[in-house]
Amino acid sequence: MNPAPRDINVRELDVRPILSSGGEPFQAIMEVVSALEPGEALRLYAPFRPQPLFKVMAGRGFDHEAREIEGGDWEVLFTPQPTSAAVELSDDAEDPETWPDPVEHLDLTELDPPKPMVRILAAAERLEPGEVLFALLSREPIFLFPELTKRGHQWAGNFDETRTAFRIFVRVGKARG
């Protein structure tokens, strides 16, 4: 059995019974694929190497790993390609990878808006210019962005792979407008 990467959830579908009874498994496969949660993988069993499916699944953002198992059947593990959302940057944020490590970490996922915004702005006030803070939120804090910019702070952030958490680095600026 292919090992599932990391600790992601894997759904299984065996289309051998469908095929042996003369049915067409494509629709069943697509139904399962559509029902996958973000980040979930699919393990498929088929009596042959399902070559045409690989392209369809790649179009939907899945990598595949196929291997022959006993009896000439095939097992394919489709895993979602790492699709971390593109990193969003404030206009003046150059090379966030060169920023120093964060001096403060905030987990704000359990707070309803606008509390996360208040906490991040308050934390930024406590830090020295050039210092960085990291915060984890349950959604993109889009009202926060213009306020950070106005205060001269830089930021870089994106969603995680499951799009259930938004991660943001804020580098405190010099201008305290």
């Binding site: 606008p114 915004m117 208040v118 991040i120 702005l121 308050a122 934390a123 930024a124 006030e125 009202f143 306020e147 106005k150």
Partner: peptide, 17 residues
């Protein structure tokens, strides 16, 4: 919510609001 953001947005984090 919008009123709060309009009035207190600029001073958030600096003084208690």
């Amino acid at each position: 919510f919008l009123t709060w953001l309009e009035c207190y947005g600029p001073i958030l984090g600096r003084i208690a609001v």
